[in-house]
């Protein structure tokens, strides 16, 4: 029943929602790089702080964030267990056959799990706060250098926008066609792989026919709305970086510096006590 047209967009009037989509795209890329740079747990703490602050500023309800994590929780647990059992560490706590659990293994699997969760939280922050139109416009604008070498970036953006709009429509259509064929006795979940693939034909063919029919009407509708009427197309959604974007960039940059610093243990300036070694390894 969820409206997937807007992807995950969560409408709210927050600082993050008002940021220039291009800035958000770049910041998310920077964030991803930052997550992969992180080495020790204390630096992870900084990244967690960064994501939590980002979420709070965006006014995304915590339930929404947890929901996005829920979709990957199986993957997270699975990799964590594998890492836990097969990581070869020095401080072995328990072992059996080829399996061993070590202190380093525990630390490593926690870090890997954190990395996945942080990646998802950070990137969904982008999709929660940016409309699909914002995203496509942002990408179009970031592709500007390509436009100079005659790549039709605007057409690509329109195609992306249309694709985003039609995904939910077509997925609903698949449901309808499957129901209709089931009512005629079709079965999609029995038999071997070949039989199952064959059973999909009565769904795929009507789906393609319908997609082409829609495409025909869409083509007329684009013409009716004077698509490509003038090369001097204007733009309703303007993207203009403001002081907010400057703050966001500065904030993220500060976090990156902090993470690098923590990674390097403040260039060795701080020597942790023996009992805290695990925070910095």
């Amino acid at each position: 029943m969820r409206d997937i047209t807007l992807g995950q967009y969560y409408p709210a009037d927050s600082f993050t929602h008002k940021l220039d989509p291009r800035v958000k795209l770049v910041l998310v890329i920077a964030f991803i790089v930052m997550v992969f740079l992180v080495k020790n747990l204390i630096a992870y703490a900084a990244v967690i702080l960064c994501v939590v602050l980002g979420t709070l500023i965006s006014r995304i309800p915590i339930s929404k964030v947890l929901k996005s994590i829920k979709t990957i929780i199986f993957l997270v647990l699975f990799t964590a267990v594998l890492n836990l059992l097969f990581y070869k560490g020095d401080t072995v706590l328990w072992s059996w056959w080829r399996i061993s659990v070590s202190l380093e293994g525990i630390l490593f699997s926690i870090k890997m799990a954190l990395r996945l969760i942080l990646l998802v939280m950070g990137t969904t922050l982008l999709t929660y706060t940016t409309t699909p139109t914002g995203l496509t416009d942002g990408m179009e604008s970031l592709m500007y250098p390509l436009k100079l070498i005659k790549v039709p970036t605007h057409d690509i953006a329109v195609i992306m926008s249309i694709a985003l709009r039609f995904i939910p429509i077509l997925s609903e259509e698949v449901d309808k066609i499957m129901m209709a064929q089931k009512a005629r006795g079709a079965s999609f979940d029995t038999g071997g792989i070949v039989k199952r693939a064959k059973a999909l034909l009565p769904v795929l063919i009507p789906l393609f026919v319908s997609a082409f029919r829609r495409a025909d009407e869409l083509a007329l509708a684009l013409d009716a709305r004077c698509y490509n009427a003038t090369p001097n197309r204007t733009r309703y959604q303007i993207m203009k970086p403001t002081y907010r974007d400057l703050i966001a960039v500065a904030g993220t940059a500060a976090f990156i510096v902090l993470v690098v610093a923590l990674n390097m243990n403040f260039w060795g300036a701080y020597v942790p006590s023996e009992s805290l070694w695990w925070l910095f390894s």
Partner: peptide
């Protein structure tokens, strides 16, 4: 459905 190009009405 086949006439709309954007996912937000104003766009």
């Amino acid at each position: 459905d086949n006439q709309m190009v954007a996912s937000v009405i104003e766009n």
